[in-house]
């Protein structure tokens, strides 16, 4: 059964990755990143049960905490960028180039 969870996790992770690559709206990109983090958590929880060990759940817990912090800062950055550039598109923030 664990394998099922792991494959689901891999699938969600890949979909999240594609979303990061394809979407231009910074907020949606952020959501995709969250999706990838959640996929990881699913794998951790599945492994925890597989090995009969709570440490996987602990790690998943910490991931959640870090993700929360990351969301706070990331969204603040998006708001700041939007305020100055009137755009939430990641393609518009392309000044750092050749």
């Amino acid at each position: 059964m664990t394998t099922h969870y792991l494959v689901l996790s891999a699938l969600l992770f890949a979909i999240g990755g594609i979303g990061v690559l394809v979407r231009r709206n910074a907020i949606v990109v952020f959501m995709c990143v969250e999706l990838m983090l959640n996929a990881c958590n699913l794998a951790f929880v599945a492994f925890a049960r597989q090995h009969g060990n709570l440490q996987g759940q602990i790690i998943a817990f910490f991931v959640m905490v870090v993700a929360a912090a990351e969301v706070v800062v990331g969204l603040a950055i998006i708001v700041t960028i939007f305020r100055t550039r009137r755009s939430a598109s990641v393609d518009d923030a392309n000044l750092l180039k050749y």
């Binding site: 689901l8 699938l11 969600l12 979909i15 594609i18 394809v22 949606v28 959501m31 995709c32 999706l35």
Partner: peptide
């Protein structure tokens, strides 16, 4: 969840 993930993207 997979369908919703696709929807998200």
């Amino acid at each position: 969840s997979v369908a919703a993930a696709f929807g998200l993207v």
